[in-house]
C-alpha cells in the first residue's frame, strides 16, 4: 500500500499513476478476455448440474427428429442415400446435432451475456471498467465454448449408445481443426447477434427467431439438397454449414479428399475474417446507436 501513502508524490511521476499514464484503449484486451473467461468458467464449475442439463436436454430436442425419420423411412431410405450420399440417416443426424450444439450456444449465450450480467447486478461495474466490451464478449464466448464442448461430448456419447451409431476416430485431428475454425467464425456471428440484442432489447424472442431460422437453414438432420435454391445459398453463408458437412464426412467416412478438405479450410478462414469484421462493426455500431439514444440503461 506504499503507493497510497501520504508520502507518495501527488503527481503523475508516482508508481500508481504510471499505469494510468501508460493506459491506451485497445480494440481487444486479451488479458481481460482471459480474466473474463476464467471468471465465467469458475462460476460454471460451481453449477456442475447445468453442464449435465445441457448434455441431456438437446438429446430430448433432437430425438423427435430421429424418431420421425424412423417412423417415415423405416430402417433405411433409398431417397435419403441418393441425395445425401449417406446410408445411415440416424448417424447423419446425430453428428449434425453435435456440431449444431455449438451454433446454438453461440446464438443463445454470447448475445445474452450482457443480459445475464445485468440480472446478477454486475453489468454496471463491468461497463465502467476500462475494458473494451468486445473483450467481454470474446471472454464469454471462450468460456461458453469450453462448457459446451463438455456437454456436447456427453451428448454425443449418450446418443451413440441410445441410437446405436458409431463414428470413425481416424480423422479426429482434422475434425478438431474444422470444429475450432467453425467456433472462431461463430464468435463473429455471436457479436452480430449481441449487437442486435442491445438495439432490440428483446433477447429471448430475437434469439429464438434467429436460432430457428439458422437451424432450418443448417443441414443438421437433412442434407442441404432438400432446401430450395435460394435457401441453399443462404445456408452456405452461415458459419456452420460447411463445417457440419465436412465434419460429417470425416466422422462417418473416416477420411476426406485432400482438395475438398483444403478448400473447406480456406472457406472457413474467409468466413472467420468476414464474420469477425462484420460482427465487430455491427456490435460497435449498435453500441453507439444505443449510447446516442441513451437507451443502454433500459437494456
Amino acid at each position: 500500500m506504499q503507493r497510497l501513502s501520504a508520502d507518495a508524490p501527488p503527481n503523475n511521476q508516482s508508481g500508481v499513476s504510471s499505469e494510468i499514464v501508460g493506459f491506451t484503449p485497445r480494440t481487444i484486451d486479451w488479458n481481460a478476455v482471459r480474466v473474463f473467461a476464467e471468471k465465467n468458467l469458475r462460476i460454471a464449475m460451481r453449477y456442475p448440474a447445468n453442464i449435465l442439463v445441457w448434455a441431456f436436454l438437446p438429446l430430448m430436442w433432437f430425438a423427435p427428429y430421429v424418431l420421425m425419420m424412423v417412423a417415415i423411412g423405416g430402417g433405411s431410405s433409398v431417397h435419403f442415400t441418393e441425395i445425401s450420399g449417406f446410408e445411415d440417416f440416424i448417424a447423419f443426424a446425430v453428428i449434425g446435432w453435435f456440431v449444431y450444439t455449438y451454433v446454438d450456444t453461440t446464438i443463445w449465450s454470447i448475445g445474452q451475456n450482457f443480459r445475464w450480467e445485468q440480472f446478477s447486478g454486475t453489468l454496471e461495474p463491468l461497463f465502467v471498467a476500462p475494458v473494451p466490451r468486445t473483450s467481454i464478449l470474446i471472454g464469454a464466448a471462450i468460456s461458453d465454448t469450453v462448457s459446451t464442448s463438455i456437454s456436447a461430448l456427453i451428448m454425443l456419447g449418450t446418443s451413440c449408445i441410445i441410437f446405436g451409431v458409431g463414428y470413425a476416430v481416424t480423422a479426429i485431428v482434422p475434425i478438431i481443426l474444422v470444429l475450432m475454425m467453425m467456433v472462431v467464425a461463430l464468435f463473429g456471428f455471436g457479436f452480430m447477434i449481441a449487437g442486435l440484442i442491445i438495439v432490440f432489447k428483446d433477447p429471448s424472442v430475437l434469439t429464438e427467431l434467429i436460432d430457428n431460422v439458422v437451424f432450418a437453414l443448417s443441414p443438421v438432420s437433412y442434407p442441404i439438397q432438400v432446401l430450395p435454391r435460394a435457401a441453399q445459398v443462404a445456408a452456405y453463408a452461415l458459419p456452420a454449414t460447411i463445417a457440419i458437412m465436412t465434419i460429417r464426412e470425416l466422422a462417418i467416412g473416416g477420411a476426406a479428399e485432400v482438395v475438398s478438405f483444403l478448400s473447406t479450410i480456406g472457406a472457413l478462414g474467409l468466413l472467420i475474417v468476414a464474420f469477425w469484421v462484420l460482427g465487430l462493426l455491427c456490435f460497435r455500431y449498435a453500441e453507439r446507436w444505443t449510447k446516442k439514444r441513451g437507451s443502454m440503461g433500459g437494456f
Binding site: M69, S77, F80, N212, V213, S221
Partner: peptide
C-alpha cells in the same frame, strides 16, 4: 419455423 425443419427432414427420408 418449428414445422418446416420437420417437414424438410421427413421429405429427405420419404422422397415424397
Amino acid at each position: 419455423v418449428w414445422l418446416i425443419p420437420m417437414l424438410l427432414t421427413g421429405n429427405a427420408v420419404s422422397g415424397g
